[in-house]
Design a binder for these strands. Structure first.
Lengths: 106, 106
DNA sequence: CGGGATCCTTGGGGATACTG
DNA sequence: CAGTATCCCCAAGGATCCCG
């Protein structure tokens, strides 16, 4: 049962399709974040999973990890240049969600 | 641990976030489909799941089921007017995926 | 602060069989 | 053709403990 590789929609979902990835990317599209910041702003995600999803986004080349090599540790996460190409998509997702919430609220 | 309801990104993901939903919606944005057509074009999805995801999309109000009440049965699926508002988003998803595939291919 | 290693849990996806 | 009804499974998400 081949999975019709090469489907554009699947390609995108493969990158941003984790449970929290769009939320992470949406934030990173605005500013770079320290890990502790992300943990605070998305406190409903377990730390393990947050880091795992960041790693996967790195592996896809859309997020970069910037280690400032300081004591105490300071590590930032940001979109790569390539990841920035997702910005319009992320905005579209947020915009539709916004109108959807209004729609449901009446 | 509240899940930060009211987040626009989550609202969208809640609607289109199934494993195959974007693929289904992307097709329905172009034309209405009979169930058997969808099954053929997305033959890698099990029938059970395909129908389940269609039901969920109906429940969200973005897909409508049109029963022509014929023998043999003829049922069509299409986007609702509201679902049509997803079209730009679906295009953006497909467009990014397309460029992503080129990106990886070199 | 920013992780890695481990183990547990769950629900979304899937296979199969049957029906009007 | 267009479904429904079950049962199953595993990968993704999550909790916990430990570390430089």
């Amino acid at each position: 049962m081949e999975d019709q590789a090469g489907c554009p929609v699947k390609a995108t979902v493969g990158v941003i399709g984790g449970k929290w990835k769009t939320g992470i990317l949406y934030r990173l599209a605005r500013k770079s974040y320290r890990l502790s910041e992300l943990k605070r702003e998305m406190s409903w995600i377990s730390e393990t999973v947050l880091i795992r999803q960041l790693r996967e986004l790195q592996a896809e080349g859309v997020v970069e990890r910037i280690d400032h090599r300081q004591r105490p540790p300071k590590v930032e996460y940001a979109l790569t240049d390539y990841g920035q190409s997702l910005a319009p998509l992320l905005d579209a997702i947020a915009a539709w969600g916004q109108s959807h919430l209004s729609h449901k609220a009446g």
